[in-house]
Design a protein around this nucleic acid. Structure first.
Lengths: 340, 340
DNA sequence: TTGAAAGCGCTAACAT
DNA sequence: ATGTTAGCGCTTTCAA
């Protein structure tokens, strides 16, 4: 059977083989590999030559077992398909490049129980550190997990030992988006919310309220509809909003995916963007610049967030992570908004 | 109490701890965990209780070291941010759920050298199997890698030991897309190609040519422009096409992202879709249904491809993977195409 | 049925 | 500077 043959063929080369081949002891081989202690030049050459000839690859698991470190970082995301997360992932990936660390990615699918489950899985694999990208875990739970290994968490501020948080003001973003609309003369500004329990979503709503208050506009509950951060939520929300008959001239969608769904409904119902209704999103996803018309949105430095998380965690793991400056949130004015 | 001590010391609980707590030997504990041999009922209870009380999690690395298996599957993708890959990832993720296998994902960034590099990394981690999602590696290279561990590769047909390929006819998809346009009366059909070395891209082009030939339309080289499978490539290509002055009434873009870029240029130049120009994409990405207007495209069963890959690999690893039927390619007619 | 003991491949005392 | 050796936590003979 193929599997048997595979196992049979797979004569893993060990340090012992290398040692024999080079005529030295295993500890000398180990020392050369790890560069811990000085070794005479001729032996080094002999060993390096043997390693090359034998195509020796150290068994990381044996090493892990010995050193109690696994050189893996667990990443909890919510949805592999969300462009939001994948952008952060890119930064993370870049951040651990050439550090010897590998990433194990698991999805929580926006479910606290599943999240906890997945983290347990990660811990069973003895990951050296954890990156938790938003999610529904409670601060207490995270603090508890942090007793096992260092954690970097995004989207909220946690003050606990062994935890770093990467936090940037979604409230400010919501404020920026709404103020932009206000400055364009809009006063009837609808808001399509994100998941009600999602901290980012809540903050964005707060920013919306703040900008409204500042402009002396009273918040009309009829203009607030529920979305779910996905395209389809935007579709439902916009349909509901339109069906309610409440008049509005602008919409602030809690994220770009929501905006995309909303925009489709608008177009389908013959409502022009931005001529009839202005639209602002949040995230500046890679595709948002290519929509028709290109979407005005709030740019989050997602890639840098990923890099920053990596750097923070590496720091906690005693590695010298390069410091990453986190750019601020930024309003990107494109073509879905105009003066009323 | 033992638990307190262990938790306080933050020390990993080992089989030895469990054995002591339950008053049995380590081998008995191991036997119970693995269910290999029958063990008396009272001891089993005692051990299971101890495991629960101590919150014992077996160290997978030690187990790996002993058994020579790591319970990890390496996945080579090209781009974490591409919706194409993430959709397949989802299926993969679902496919290994509850099997005990974890996925390690690495990106090749469409570069053969980087791909080989990343695979070496994966092999250094002794992954039990590999899933290679398209890419630029040669068949020979893959066959060579397959000597170390079983491989499932997508997007091409490889006949080699220890390799399974998941292949579906991009050529047929290209044919379907083009024939749809032809059936709508179009005869001047432009094609925005994918990366010239990408096998999927090449096949789609072949399908295009085939449909044209079948309809007795001679291929006009002026109507073929180069893209790169990304939005920006679509932008450049469409600009070039328009600037060339070559007349056309329809465009087949080699993938949805390309179509998105092309569509933005069209809109920006005041060319209406589908009134002036019909547009067909390829992939049916999650967002494509939400474009304005919703994109006519070829649906690839990407999620199922992921599941299928998982099932195939699990099978090669001696696990009982559930068989997944791969749905065929399918033309999804939405609103970017119309009769000329 | 159970326990004792021998490793899996590696690193790091401890010797020399 | 180099070799010898004792484990890391687990599974699996081999005995009993």
């Amino acid at each position: 059977m193929a599997l048997d043959r595979l196992v049979a063929d797979r004569q893993a080369v060990t340090v012992l083989d290398v040692a024999r081949e080079a005529g030295v002891s295993v500890s000398t081989v180990s020392r050369i590999i790890n560069g811990t202690v000085k070794v005479s030049e001729d032996k080094r050459l002999a060993v390096e030559d043997a390693i090359r000839r034998l195509e020796f690859k150290p068994n990381l698991f044996a090493r892990s077992l010995k050193k109690g470190t696994t050189m893996t970082i667990g990443v909890l995301i919510q949805d592999v398909e969300s462009p939001f997360f994948t952008r952060v992932m890119c930064g993370l990936e870049e951040g651990v490049l050439d550090t010897g660390y590998a990433l194990i990615i698991v999805s929580g699918h926006w479910d606290a129980a599943e999240e906890a489950e997945r983290i347990k899985l990660l811990m069973a694999r003895r990951v050296d550190g954890l990156v938790i990208l938003t999610g529904h875990l409670s601060d207490a739970q995270i603090a508890e997990f942090a007793q096992m290994q260092p954690i970097v968490v995004t989207g909220r501020k946690i003050d606990a030992e062994n935890v770093r948080s990467v936090f940037f003001s979604n409230e400010e973003g919501g404020y920026l988006a709404t103020r932009h609309l206000v400055s364009l003369g809009h006063r009837r500004i609808a808001f399509i919310a994100g998941p009600p329990t999602h901290s980012d979503a809540i903050s964005r709503f707060e920013g919306y309220q703040q900008a409204l208050a500042e402009a002396g506009i009273v918040l009309d509950p009829a203009l607030i509809v529920q979305g779910d951060f996905k395209e389809n939520g935007g579709v439902f929300a916009m349909n509901r909003l339109l069906d309610s008959g409440a008049p509005f001239t602008a919409v602030f969608a809690a994220n770009d995916q929501t905006a995309l769904g909303a925009r489709m409904v608008l177009s389908r119902r013959g409502i022009r963007v931005p001529d009839d209704v202005s639209l602002v999103g949040f995230d500046d996803l890679p595709t948002s610049a290519y929509l028709t018309p290109p979407l005005t949105t709030i740019r989050q430095p997602l890639f840098e967030v990923g890099q920053h998380c990596a750097s923070l965690l590496l720091g906690m793991l005693g590695q010298q992570g390069k410091a990453i400056a986190l750019p601020p949130l930024e309003l990107v004015v494109r073509e879905t908004t105009r003066r009323v």
